[in-house]
Design a protein around this nucleic acid. Structure first.
Lengths: 148, 148
DNA sequence: TTGACACTACGAAGAGCGTCGTAGATAATC
DNA sequence: GATTATCTACGACGCTCTTCGTAGTGTCAA
């Protein structure tokens, strides 16, 4: 239970989703968005635990605390993908991509987008050889930021 | 705890990996491959539970039972990818692909492979409109096979 | 036949997760 | 100032996961 970086649970992810779309929020606000997905105190407790785990940050200045996701959606997505890559794809991104495309119905627009991205990426890889950064991931998240 | 299709846990995945590479195996064989990752009885217990969950099949003909993965590696990979897609990527395969490529260092060879796959897939999508099958996934896994 | 050994079955313990009830403190309302 | 509403904190329960010890049973060799 130490400061090991582990993956968020399903319930935690549900809360993070709200935090990502709404931005910094109170427990009540999160609870309202989630509807009857879970009770108020359940969400409160979860968010308290997430604070301990450093999954969210809490502003206790006012009586009603304000919570904020500690990691961006991009960072979390990347973390989770990396995890899945290691656990079941033997680290091969190609295999994962293949399954992702085989699994869901991907729209032609999405396919086009992916191809475009790949073209850019190939250019970058060929010239730089190793350095992979700089081609992808729209939304500006270059920071990789230390562990805990 | 009913027959709901859920994702295998980490420990279960470790066992499945052995089963996938070795084929049908006894508990001892799995334990040997896994080294001191876990004790013998731990693995035994896990595999018993996995049998109940229908994650593996067990041949009890001989005294020493023989276990076999109930789902192929491909099927499981697809299941897990779909799950991740739904939980954190809002169903967008494109986003997932982007993160997968941004996350790990993908070799130029792999990139080429992915691009080739995409070319084929685009052709199929444009003509058929919906039917996505038939383009990819080397390793022969056309079967989709019923739930439990 | 009697050990020594291998294998399965069973049970339990400890941790994490998700759920919620309730208590206690603070703010708002009349 | 008293009542009501709102919010956090705490503790507990049931469940799953992982781990392992131990018991029971079958197998084989000396």
């Amino acid at each position: 239970m130490k400061g090991l970086r582990r993956r968020p649970t399903d319930a935690e992810l549900a809360i993070l989703r709200v935090l990502w779309t709404r931005g910094p929020s109170t427990v009540r606000e999160v609870a309202e968005v989630m509807g009857r997905e879970a009770g108020y105190t359940t969400i409160l407790k979860l968010m308290q635990i997430m604070t301990e785990k450093r999954l969210v940050r809490r502003d206790e200045a006012a009586r009603t605390h304000i919570y904020e996701a500690a990691y961006t959606e991009d960072q979390t997505q990347r973390h989770l993908v990396t995890d899945l890559l290691d656990r079941v794809f033997d680290g091969s991104a190609a295999k994962l991509v293949i399954q992702a495309l085989a699994a869901g119905k991907t729209s032609p627009e999405e396919l086009a987008e992916i191809r475009k991205l790949l073209r850019e990426k190939v250019r970058g890889t060929e010239s730089a050889g190793e350095d992979v950064r700089g081609a992808g991931a729209p939304g500006g998240n270059e920071d990789r930021r230390g562990r805990q």
